[in-house]
Amino acid sequence: MKKLLLILFCFALSYNSYSQDSPYKTDGWKDGAYIAGAVGLNVLGFTFIQNKEALTEAEIAALDKNDIWGIDRWAAGNYSKNADALSYIPFYAALGAPLFLLPGEAERNNFGQISVLFVETMATTGVFYTITAGLIDKSRPLVYNEDLPFGERAEGGAQRSFIAGHTAVASAGSFFAAKIFNDFHPDSKAIPYVWGGATGVSVLMGYLRTKAGKHFLTDNIVGAIVGAASGILIPELHKKGKENIDLYPTASFNVNGTGINTKGLALSYKF
């Protein structure tokens, strides 16, 4: 995903044209700076993920389903390679969400601008995913499946259940497409179906990732909320007439130079 974000970043900056019929306003410097900052935070988050430690035999043996929240406990031990493979269909479809907007003439005329908004949406979603998945240690449902090989249950990658990245991406892409369609065609009778489709994609992804043993229900719920919020708010904050609202990535460093204290996104409103 990191390489994809960088590719989309370069593409968006090289194709940032839009026509007067666009409901949005973008700025090459501001949006470029935002994307660069968000990608930087994604890279930081990926380093956290890559440095996750595997569980020991003692830690695996100490796992108890009864310690899991009741709303999630039923998914403990889930595992399905087929569901995992199927989940990549809506995942990649979400990454190509802007392409579904090309049939519309107005969207085609503003495809460069839409691409910029999409990169910001995915980069924002990535920040929330990589930082939480990198800093929060939570075993996936499959870790509780005693029929799986020890190595598969103990590996560091199996300890990043929260939040659900695939669900966040699917939700971000589908709700982004719905939001763009809504803003370009506010009087269209298809709007309820478009929003319904976006919700359906998110639910389907959550189901597949839970069945695959990759995430618990709450992981998927939070992932879907993060993705939907990014897909809706990024275009909304760029709508004409809302230039006094700014969203930007931020990180603070402590005075002792021992590391990063806070990382994330900041929202400001100019009166």
Rank of each mutant, 00 (worst) to 15 (best):
D64W: 03
E107Q: 13
L217G: 02
I35E: 07
T121N: 06
N66G: 05
T250G: 03
A97S: 03
D147N: 15
V226I: 15
S17F: 13
V143F: 10
G37E: 03
P90A: 06
M205S: 12
P141L: 04
A93L: 04
V127R: 09
G227S: 11
I221D: 01
V203N: 10
K2I: 15
V226D: 08
V39Y: 10
L102I: 01
G231W: 13
I35Y: 01
N82A: 05
S268E: 11
P90F: 03
V203G: 04
K2N: 14
G165I: 02
A190T: 00
E57T: 00
T210E: 15
P192N: 10
P186V: 07
K263L: 03
S188I: 01
T124M: 12
Y88C: 01
E57H: 06
G257C: 07
T258W: 00
T210P: 06
G77T: 09
D219P: 06
G173E: 00
L86V: 13
T199N: 13
A251T: 14
D27R: 13
H238W: 12
L142S: 11
Q20W: 10
F9I: 04
L44P: 01
Y207V: 15
T124G: 12
G134R: 07
V39C: 06
I260E: 11
V127D: 07
A62W: 08
L95F: 04
G70F: 10
K138A: 02
L44F: 13
R160M: 14
A154W: 11
S22M: 13
N66M: 10
Q50T: 08
A154C: 04
L13C: 03
A228P: 07
N42I: 15
G96C: 00
A38S: 00
T262F: 01
I49P: 06
A154P: 05
L148V: 12
S80P: 04
A61E: 15
G96Y: 05
E53Y: 01
F118Y: 12
G40N: 12
A168C: 04
V201S: 08
I49Q: 13
A133T: 10
I180P: 05
Q159M: 09
F175V: 11
S17V: 05
K3W: 14
K65Q: 14
E146G: 02
P141Y: 12
W29T: 01
L95N: 08
A54Q: 13
P192L: 07
N145A: 09
A266E: 02
S161G: 01
E152C: 04
K25P: 00
W69S: 13
V169L: 06
S174E: 13
E236C: 09
Y18V: 08
P23N: 10
A83T: 07
A229K: 12
A94E: 08
S202T: 12
D147Q: 15
K30M: 09
N110F: 04
E107P: 09
A94Y: 02
K214C: 02
G223C: 01
K240E: 08
A172H: 08
V226K: 08
Y34H: 09
T125S: 04
P235V: 01
L4N: 14
E152Q: 13
L99G: 07
S252Y: 13
L117C: 05
F184G: 08
K263T: 00
T26Y: 11
I260H: 00
P235C: 00
L55M: 15
Y18L: 08
A178N: 08
I60R: 09
E152I: 02
T210N: 10
T199H: 07
K138N: 06
D67M: 03
H166T: 12
L267H: 07
G28C: 09
C10S: 13
F9C: 01
I245F: 15
